[in-house]
Nucleic acid binder design. Structure first.
Lengths: 348, 348
DNA sequence: GCCCCGGCTGTGAGCGCTAACAATGCTCCG
DNA sequence: CGGAGCATTGTTAGCGCTCACAGCCGGGGC
């Protein structure tokens, strides 16, 4: 049943019942030190008796700040951003913050600015922006910033508070695993070039190849989608010299596996494949996919650490986060999609 | 740079600049009818000039209601709940609502009640609970409910405002597709029995079988995970009479495909498979998976319609939603995992 | 010509809370 | 034994907004 027009008890009601002033109630609620234990108990039991709940709007009005973190996230259901968001929402609530979410469909500056402004209007204590592409990251630079703002999955080259998965190192590790299996070189099916994640993984791949003195094949373009991986697979399957492929995410790896299978290229017998993300189904692809597992929870925790620190030290450099590293290195999950190249592998 | 202690301009500042009273500013902001056009323009330009933004906390304090919808969602990253949440977040923002999210790790009554209370403290205008299991749905019954509350993916047998995917019909359609291909009967790898979604899909499967006068094989238990599907597949692969399987979700279907492949059972040559969810990778599994696609966006839209209606009509029955149907029927996506049973299929 | 009425605008109060300061009662020290 | 000094509590003043109620003005009915 919906009850209207009935407001719950206020601080004054509690004060009356406890026989103290409203201010003392406020002190008890905010864990102010100078309250006698006996008084505290009396207030607490009055609160309990009345079922009193503090009015957050009133508190926000006077303090000018709500204990809420605003999140701006892309509207897509891509595994990375979604997992990031989920991990953050859970961690934030555990840390006692509310979480307000604005999903933006278009990843452009205008949408981001609007979303941030929206959060600011709500007097949030801090803002998190999942900023996987340049226009989003750039829009944040010019914004007025009355509260700490932390970027996730943003531009690793930009200054400012940011936490992300170490894409470059992830790319290197993936490539290294393939090289270690004995392959001469490794091909790469990349994500969309305007995504920092994609660029980082590709950079790591190329760097590792160069460090090992290997030839760096041309990048096969993709867009994160299984379809793109499938198309890439159709292309790569025709080239007998291709024995190892690093796909920038598991979705594309899935499509890749599909195409390779269709064209009769055995995995891992003829071609080895490594993905990125460790999506739940990757252990049961055919064959089970070796992949990189990012620790979204660790990233989320680190983001929250920045806000907690910013709360404690309200200096202008709050949430700059020079202390803890900005990037969390993903780990390799070895499964059945990697093996030594076939003995008769043709030279390129 | 973080600026502190500086509050933005208030309604009074705007009023002064526009040469009117603060109340007139308020009227302009709230689209009150009785404001002369010239005045309106003057106020608007003052707002613009000062970069004024209304203080939401102040408004919430006096009205007792914030234009925010609170969502309680399971902490998992299962495709269904996550997609539901994503769709809802996007729709809500488009409808002008803020969205506050609390993810609960444990799907029990206590967690739900806490989460709902949290939202209530924030003066939300409405609450959405993704309540996929009985304890969650039950906890909602006993709750004080000063605002409209809509359940998503909840108990179809419970009264009250609810919107969900039509799981029963989905189960029937999936089963029917397999029967139509010529199979004698269809096996079912179910989700966890305490999930309404799982129960509904299983019920639809059994109902369709019975309606067609077919034998109803025992349910193969599962828990939504690819691993469970894999185990089910290992079991089913040993039984030559199994020619058609309906997996309660695509993740389990993925594991099922894996096990069937390992055991040398050809799909769809020997065994046909239908999944549920249409996850992005399902088009590129081996073979591409025939599956049921739920329309999360439609569900989200319907939920929002209920809140919009409740806003307009603040009667006690608001958001009861007797008008529009509670369930959105999923559609069959036909791919390569279904074919006629082998000619020599043994009788059970 | 007077009054009533409706369109438009202003005034005052108060939503529930915290911050700043004032007031009280003690303890402790010289 | 007086007062500094501290712990504890109360008082007052807003935070920025909406709601209820007044006021003012011009036009139309009689």
């Amino acid at each position: 049943m919906v009850e209207r027009n009935r407001r719950g008890p206020s601080m004054f009601d509690v004060a009356r019942v406890a026989g103290v002033s409203h201010q003392t109630v406020s002190r008890v609620l905010n864990a102010h030190p100078n309250v006698r234990e006996a008084t505290r108990v009396r207030v607490l039991s009055a609160i309990d008796e009345l079922g009193y709940r503090p009015n957050r709007a009133a508190r926000t009005l006077v303090t000018g700040r709500d204990r809420v973190l605003g999140v701006v996230a892309p509207g897509s259901t891509l595994f990375g951003p979604v997992s990031m968001l989920a991990a953050f929402e859970e961690q934030a609530v555990q840390a006692g913050f509310g979480v307000s979410v604005v999903r933006i469909r278009a990843l452009d500056g205008t949408s981001v600015r609007e979303a941030v402004q929206r959060h600011l209007d709500g007097q949030v204590s801090g803002i998190v922006v999942i900023a996987p592409v340049a226009p989003v990251a750039a829009a944040l630079e010019e914004l007025p910033r009355p509260v700490p703002l932390v970027t996730v999955d943003g531009d690793p080259d930009r200054p400012g508070a940011m936490v992300t998965v170490d894409q470059v190192e992830g790319g290197r590790l993936a490539t290294r695993a393939l090289l270690a299996a004995g392959h001469r070189t490794v091909w790469h099916v990349a994500g969309p070039p305007d995504w920092f994640d994609a660029a980082g993984r590709a950079a790591g791949w190329a760097a590792e190849l160069r460090a090992a003195g290997r030839e760096v094949p041309p990048v096969v373009p993709g867009d994160w989608s299984p379809d793109a991986g499938y198309r890439a697979g159709q292309f790569l399957a025709r080239m007998p010299e291709v024995t190892a492929v690093f796909a920038a995410n598991d979705a594309m790896a899935t499509g890749l596996l599909h195409a390779l299978h269709e064209r009769g290229r055995a995995v891992p017998g003829e071609v080895s494949v490594v993905g990125f993300d460790d999506v739940p189904s990757s252990a049961h692809l055919i064959p089970p996919l070796t992949t990189m597992r990012p620790d979204f929870e660790a990233v989320a925790r680190r983001v929250l650490d920045l806000f907690v620190a910013a709360e404690a030290d309200p200096g202008p450099d709050a949430a700059a986060g020079a202390a803890s590293p900005r990037a969390v290195v993903p780990v390799l999950v070895e499964r059945a999609s990697v093996a030594a190249p076939p003995a008769d592998a043709p030279a390129p």
